[in-house]
Simulated scan of single mutants.
Amino acid sequence: MELQFLGTGAGMPSKMRNTSAVVLNLSAEGRGYWLFDCGEATQHQILHTSLKPRKIGKIFITHLHGDHIFGLPGLIGSRSFLGGNEPLDIYGPAGLEEWLETTLRITNTHLNYALQIHEIEAGIVVEDDEFLVVANSLQHVIPCLGYRIEQKPLPGKLLIDKVKETGVPNGPLLKKLKDGEDVTLDDGRIVRSHDVTGEPQDGFTVAILGDTSYCAAAVELAQDADILIHEATFDMDTGNLAKEYGHSTIGDAARTAQEAGVTTLIANHISARFMPSDVAKLKEQGEAIFPSLYIAEDFARFEWKDGAVIRE
């Protein structure tokens, strides 16, 4: 699993940061890309990466402020032009369907694929054999969601010595055993998967939150997550503005990470008032509360591997 940030700014784009968008790259898990928020010019940001719009299979919108959705119509249209013909599911709060369908209709935007818009509330958003996505309402000036993405436990590793004892030949039978399936050999013997594999391994958990003040729902969504992506629009010296506009300081983000017991915090949605020279101070303020902290930058990539978060 990999995270790639396309926009890490707040409110409006700046020379250093575009508006909100982050890709959860699940190519290694066979799921393509899941995009969280789609601020203005997100598709332009994608042009500077190796990401392919046609591989975006799901888009999750946190709320309907323009810096989180104004890039959607263009991206949706370009996905069609660029050969995307697989269905696209978009999830978000009430009002998303009316706005998007009206925009596509008035602009006569033709899509070569099925578009499914799901207006959601708090609760389970997506669940299948491998993943669970849960949403909860955050505390902002308009309805806003946060998302918790859980990869369900993975099959245990094959115990090669035990496999050899059973006489299972190299080939597709080994994969079946690793995937939890029992196999029957040519001589009629049945080899049980649980006899030749280790204990199931934990998958990853990522919490990706929209705009919010500090609130219990954010802590709940982030509980024991490997990665928490939390807005940090303001620093500790401008906390009064954070409260007024329904946002968080870097301290609020760090406090949420600490109380939730997450492994790594990535602070996002940084106000344009902060210049590159201010990032060190932001990081210092956050690390005083929660040391395992990164400040997101446009095009930054993070990989989750063997339980650890690696900045690429």
Score class of each variant (00 low, 15 high):
L51Y: 09
L26Y: 06
I59C: 00
N240F: 14
A94V: 10
E181V: 03
A242H: 06
G11W: 12
G171H: 14
N18Q: 11
V22E: 03
Q116G: 02
A257S: 12
M236T: 07
R192Q: 09
H48S: 14
V141P: 01
T102H: 09
S213D: 06
I295R: 04
E165N: 09
Q258D: 10
R192S: 10
E284H: 13
A300S: 15
K15Y: 10
P169S: 07
L104G: 03
L82Y: 15
K52D: 15
K15V: 05
D202F: 03
L51M: 12
P276L: 08
Y245C: 03
A94L: 11
Q151A: 06
S248C: 12
L47S: 14
P93E: 08
G188D: 10
I59G: 01
H247G: 01
T205P: 01
L154T: 04
S78L: 13
G239N: 12
G57K: 15
D211W: 02
D89E: 13
D235G: 13
C215K: 02
W304Y: 14
Y294H: 10
I229M: 14
L221W: 01
Q223C: 00
S292A: 15
C215R: 02
Q223H: 12
R79A: 01
H110Y: 10
K152P: 03
A21W: 06
H65V: 09
D129R: 08
L173A: 05
L75S: 03
F36D: 00
H65T: 06
Q258Y: 05
D89F: 08
T264Y: 05
D226M: 04
P172T: 07
G239M: 13
G180P: 05
L24H: 02
T256L: 06
V191A: 04
E150W: 00
L282F: 10
P200Q: 11
K157C: 02
M236A: 13
A257I: 03
K176L: 11
E29A: 13
T102C: 06
L51F: 13
R54D: 11
Q43E: 11
D226H: 08
N85M: 09
S27G: 05
G77E: 14
G57Q: 09
H140F: 15
E127M: 07
T233F: 04
G210T: 02
R148I: 01
V125Y: 02
A216Q: 12
L145F: 14
S277Q: 15
E121D: 14
A41V: 03
K157Q: 13
R105C: 06
F302H: 07
G180M: 11
E119S: 08
H68W: 07
F131M: 14
W304S: 00
Y245L: 09
P291A: 11
Q139P: 00
N268Q: 13
K52V: 04
Q285C: 04
T49H: 12
F290M: 06
Q43K: 08
T107R: 10
H68G: 04
A288E: 11
E199Q: 15
R105K: 13
N25R: 10
T238M: 13
A217P: 00
L154W: 10
R54M: 05
H194S: 10
D182I: 05
T102I: 07
I46F: 05
T197S: 12
I117F: 05
G286M: 08
L158R: 12
L159K: 15
S213W: 01
P291C: 04
G71Q: 11
